[in-house]
Design a binder for these strands. Sequence first.
DNA 1: ATGCCTTTGAAGTTG
DNA 2: CAACTTCAAAGGCAT
Length: 390
Amino acid sequence: MPQLSSGGGDDLGANDEMISFKDEGDQDEKIQENAFTERDLADLKSSLVNESETNQSPNAAAVRRGQQNEHRGYQEKHREHLDGVSKHQDGGMYKTAYPGYPFLMLPDPYIPNGSVSPSSNKVSVVQQSHGMHPLTSLLPYSNDHFNPSPPHLPTDMSQKGIHRPQSQDISGFYSLPQGGVGQMPPSMGWQSQPVYPLSSCGFRQPYSSSLPNSSSYPRFSHSLMLGPGMHSTGIPHPAIVPPSGKQDHHDHYDRNMYAKPHQEPKREKEPKKPVIKKPLNAFMLYMKEMRAKVIAECTLKESAAINQILGRRWHALTREEQAKYYELARKERQLHMQLYPSWSARDNYGKKKRRKREKQQDSTTDPGSPKKCRARFGLNQQTDWCGPCR
DNA sequence: ATGCCTTTGAAGTTG
DNA sequence: CAACTTCAAAGGCAT
């Protein structure tokens, strides 16, 4: 893949990247294949669908329609919506949220003013004591494309208590904290938003278990969105994460770091070096922005499922639409470089690898159960002995 | 408690 | 230099 930053200039190196899409045919094939195998599971699960779920769906047929639609190629569906000929009675998510191209909804949840995704609260960000981003004034972003919301609507908010600046700059992802109270962007009007039927989501059935019901449908309280971490002092840079805390499952950073950004005086031990995370690439930025929409429209929660949808939508975007994110990502990298000139992706490299290696080493010395051991060495479970087990 | 899943893209590593 | 690997986000789920 060519580097976007290469060659300078207009920097639409993204175009090259976009040319080299995966074989969509294969993808669709894979998708359909999965859809088929997963439908069985879905059928199974659908029997467990609770009352509220059916209440949300106009009728069972609608649900089934959604399931049937799952077997149609995403591209087909996408084309449908592009043509503005949504056959979904419910109007379909695109009809509702994407009158035209998906990007037209960008203004709504765009992250620069706070990744609205209620699920993306885990902003991977850093907690530093100072409130102002050192490069605030350097942020050259003109987010014309991403103007987050109508002027009358507050946009300064983020999840789990992260302040997002109202100013339109790159800081959306490397949030620049500002004073003031977190506010709800238009897209955060979750509770008043209509429930989008599952059929509008081009997603596969296994997640029908996530069909809306009164309890599972994402409702986000203000306390969640304006968590205790909402503070006027803020977050210097989302890419930085305190090494001590747990940021996410993978890297063990503190998810709630924003919730308690100022409670650290207690621990005065080892001022460890904060972890600086990778800047987000174009797709990651896109995901972060669109996740909330997908969650709302498809009533999904599982990120793996959501990401599949987002991946398909990503491919459905036009070059111009993608270019916006590539450009944003490029600026993200630039800013990241400015902020952390000495940082290298290598810094965070090899953690999992190391863990894996360590695990493997453990497993070589510790054979585990005989069954596991035989399986590992491809031996007959009934008759064979493996060395380590012996 | 931890890792996997799932996506794309950037960047690092390996051969 | 091509191919491969890792890590960014996300949250449910399995172990």
